[in-house]
Write a protein that binds this DNA or RNA. Sequence first.
RNA 1: GGCCCGUUCGUCUAGGGGUUAGGACGUUAGAUUUUCAUUCUAGAAACAGGGGUUCGAUUCCCCUACGGGCUACCA
Length: 506
Amino acid sequence: MSDKKVRVRFAPSPTGGLHLGGVRTVLFNYLFAKKNGGDFVLRIEDTDQSRYVEGAEQYILDCLEWCGLTPDESPVAGGPFAPYRQSERKSLYREYAEKLVREGHAYYAFDTTEELEQNRKEIPNFQYGQAYRNSLRNSLSLKEHEVDLLLDAHTPHVIRIKMPADERVSFNDMIRGHVSFETNQVDDKVLLKADGMPTYHLAVVVDDYLMKITHAFRGEEWLPSAPVHLLLWEYLGWKAEMPQWAHLPLILKPDGHGKLSKRDGARLGFPVYAMNWFDAKTGELTPGFRELGFLPEAFLNLLATLGWNDGTDQEIFSLDELVEKFSLDRVSKAGAKFDFEKAKWFNAEWIKKSEAGSLKSEVKRILGDKGVIVTNDDYLLQVIDKVKDRCVLLPDFYHQSAYFFEQPKEYDVNSVKAKWTDAKTEFFNAFINTIKTTETFEPVELEAAFKALAEEKAIKAGELMLPFRIMLVGGKFGPHVFDIAVLLGKDETIRRIEKALVVFGS
RNA sequence: GGCCCGUUCGUCUAGGGGUUAGGACGUUAGAUUUUCAUUCUAGAAACAGGGGUUCGAUUCCCCUACGGGCUACCA
């Protein structure tokens, strides 16, 4: 086992957008694989055609790309174990199911959905298993020739696993340690559906075996069906090659109770999906972290620390650091409530930490979308450096930097008008002159000149700073006002003072 | 209901038989910023309960409570 090359897989079903928890599962898979020099496989589990959603697979691929968690093998990249879509592997599952039937570990069941529903309604705690299987219509209860007749007539049927009586199935989970189940408590899960498609239970075992998966990560919600999978590995004769399991803790709703769901995002006002997801059928748009203005680094960072830490006080990790430091025995067992406030903090930290250059194209796009055209990239870089500490989400760059590129459309006149005097108008006219006549244009000197002039005119500098800011910015925010003026340049600063004077004076 | 998993500040967590139970987010108060944000300083804030084991349990064991998951021809 130990000398085998590590191979992990992320196996989503393409039924919609990719959930936070899903991305975290990808991340842990990826980290574990890269840490151990292994391969990361993407397998699409599209065995339920009724839930298949057009575009969902592409969306998953796009998500992985945005996050920088590129699979080594996938439906598009291919690989030695192709195909990587279960729908394209359909023909291969039946033989394993039939083999199990032949060897007495599975059986044909002819009950209709309606009949089973009826049973579930009428019999308390009904389970298709030990207690009831003999009174239902299957190859265990029916006579052999009756079964043959039904089969020959192509009667719709499924293949179910036959759970053994009075056994205890146990295994060692990489996260939770020893876990065990009574086989009597587990029902006879369907392995092969009437349409010939395998269920998850069969497909995951067959494909993990065929694709030589060594470590299987999945959400804790799969724990109850683990005994079925374990038994399948055994019955199929592959027990020695069974991957090691790791059942990840769930991501919970921040308020109330239960797993975090798509609905909670809408209800609480934060994204649950990695990227925007548009459902063509309902016309519904589910917002994503990317579009809200999260950096992929921040997104990964916050996901990683939801249920994992490196044992130190460090909280900010790059993907490379995560690969280096990740360890399964530092993953917690308990579910974690998602905290959007902390998520935003991670993003703010990453924006502060990022070089202006790496933020440039995103900021340019955000400004462009709002009609602010950037022509000078060097200037943009300087602006980003000046304002990035005040941005939490990427779109904040619009509010924080648009005034560097265009004159304020509106002024916070309420903050200046009440105290406006002719003396102030006079001051600013004189200040325009000062600017025109100074040779250099640099923050410290400009501030000194401003204050000197204020003293000369017998006005408190403090009374003039805010008006000056509002002339340049339009509101009460932004970096140091003299920094802004210098970045804007002499001519533009003068233009803005002149324009604002008209507004303030009227 | 049954089965399985879990339980340290409001939240994410560190710790682990003897600690002033640590950090972070958020929050409160102050400083800096003649704007706002950043930053800095300080504060409030937790071992679910009951039994054991032990000289000593938050830490180990059991029970209870609570929380969560599963209980489909969905994954």
